[in-house]
């Protein structure tokens, strides 16, 4: 038996909105300690990893480990039934064929229930290797989203360069070439800070199209954390206060 209740249902709505354009059918791993999912996009260029801790739920019960095969596209349709200030409860029995989703608004006495049919996805169990990142950049999530959108109109590819003094996002295309350079900025307004932790410089190229999809999650956190290591995929990380973390991995472009 699995049951989890989130008082601030809006967070779950935002999480589903943040991943629905990247992953399609996923196996959601339910354990007594929390909920997690990992899935690649269809082209195996991007990987989504979500981890939610049981502590972040108003009520959480999972007697055993369970795997719930879910069509994210269908889950996104069901989540549309939730108002922004609904409380959301997820329920599934052992060997369930569906996931029960309940939206409650204590104020308006409105309750919505939906049984989402589960699907069977046989996916080999892959794992994300532990990686030491030689460059970690913490940047305002709105600022990073804006930079990516603006650069995307100039080029499909962005080159990210880190060193101890700045992180640089450069593009070149038929329009011309240029770069946005952000230095370490520990302004007193915390959400405007840019924090650089660089032990080794990195220079890699990425498809901006994916970054724009990842940045859908910027509504979940005021900060985006970029973790880079030469030859390794970029990690774009959004911490979800009191609940967990949503991470996107993006394989770099390699010039032949």
């Amino acid at each position: 038996m699995f049951e989890a209740k989130l008082t601030e249902g809006l967070i779950l709505k935002k999480i589903v909105e943040s991943i629905k354009d990247i992953v399609t059918d996923v196996n959601i791993d339910i354990s007594p300690s929390g909920i997690s999912l990992q899935a690649m996009d269809s082209s195996h260029v991007a990987l989504v990893s979500l981890n939610l801790s049981m502590d972040g739920f108003e009520h959480y019960r999972a007697d055993t480990n369970m795997v719930l095969g879910v069509s994210i596209a269908n889950l996104a349709k069901v989540m549309k039934l939730a108002d922004n200030n609904d409380q959301i409860t997820l329920q599934a029995d052992q060997e369930a064929t569906h996931l029960k989703i309940i939206f409650e608004n204590p104020k308006t006495e409105r309750t919505t229930e939906f049984n989402l049919n589960l699907i069977t996805i046989d996916s080999e169990h892959l794992a994300i290797p532990e990686t030491e990142y030689s460059s970690v950049v913490t940047i305002n999530s709105g600022e990073f989203s804006k930079i990516c959108k603006e650069l995307f109109s100039l080029s499909e590819t962005v080159q990210i360069t880190t060193n101890t003094d700045y992180v640089q996002f450069s593009v070149e295309g038929e329009v011309g070439s240029g770069q946005v350079r952000l230095g370490h900025n520990d302004s007193e307004k915390k959400e405007d800070q840019t924090i650089l932790e660089v032990s080794e410089s990195v220079q890699q190229q990425f498809a901006i199209r994916y970054l724009n999809m990842f940045n859908k999650a910027s509504t979940l956190s005021s900060f985006t954390r970029l973790c880079l290591h030469q030859e390794q995929p970029l990690v774009v990380e959004f911490k979800i206060d009191n609940l967990g973390v949503l991470k996107y991995f993006l394989a770099p472009k390699i010039s032949d």
Binding site: A46, A127, P129, F249, A251, K253, D256
Partner: peptide
């Protein structure tokens, strides 16, 4: 030109 590497070398059964 640049080609896009994939996640397969990174995300694998361990």
């Amino acid at each position: 030109s640049k080609y896009q590497s994939t996640m397969d070398a990174f995300y694998k059964a361990i």
